[in-house]
Design a binder for these strands. Sequence first.
DNA 1: GCCAACGTTGGC
DNA 2: GCCAACGTTGGC
Length: 237
Amino acid sequence: EEEKSTKPPAGSSKSGWKNWKKTKDSDSGGEESKITYCHWLLKSEPESRLEKGVDVKFSIDDLKAQPNQTTFWDGVRNYQARNFLRAMKLGQQAFFYHSNCKEPGIVGIVKIVKEAYPDHTQFDQKDPHYDSSSRKENPKWSMVDVQFVRMTKRFIPLSEIKAHHLAHKADGGPLKNMMLFTRQRLSIQPLTQGKNLPLWTLGAVPSERQPLLREPGSSTYGFFFLTFSTQRNLSLS
DNA sequence: GCCAACGTTGGC
DNA sequence: GCCAACGTTGGC
């Protein structure tokens, strides 16, 4: 279904076409394709774990250790996550989240330095994420390149984000629909402003085209995350 | 290490 | 198209 939403089938059957139209037009399915996201959250496992004999550990320190502090984000094998990958634009920023570990939470910020292209690991039989059903002429899975930007000023534990999420579910705050909780298993997710709240709660309102994320000390704050944090006297940047 | 959540697979 | 079985994710 997700395949069809990116590209209508050439000689499509009636039902295939219908499904494609449905995902484009319906409120729930279509929303994803219509909305333009600007910020993301990427999960990665910082602790060693073997998958088909291969260690899948990749912490933010591992990213920092890469040449140019840059790596390809391979191994995404979920259609929704893949579609988000494909929606990522050059220069956009994402939180780097440590998952499946002692202290899950946000540890840093990365940026997209190359937009989606075929994930070569899907064709590599030795790779734990090898996909025998994918053809080179029409690769199923994509990856982007990301580069380390910086660590967050402090570690932001899942427990803290979750506390806000729970509070916001009650009071309609910006994190009430955060996908970290509404789609707990999604490894690539967009961050949104939250519908009924002003994005900018402190300082000047930046013009629309300015980068949303500022260095500490700037008079304006970006990343919707900072909205709730500043409201609650926390500082994430 | 346990297990709940949830995405995927495949029989019917 | 339904849904039970199964596999994976990821918090705890």
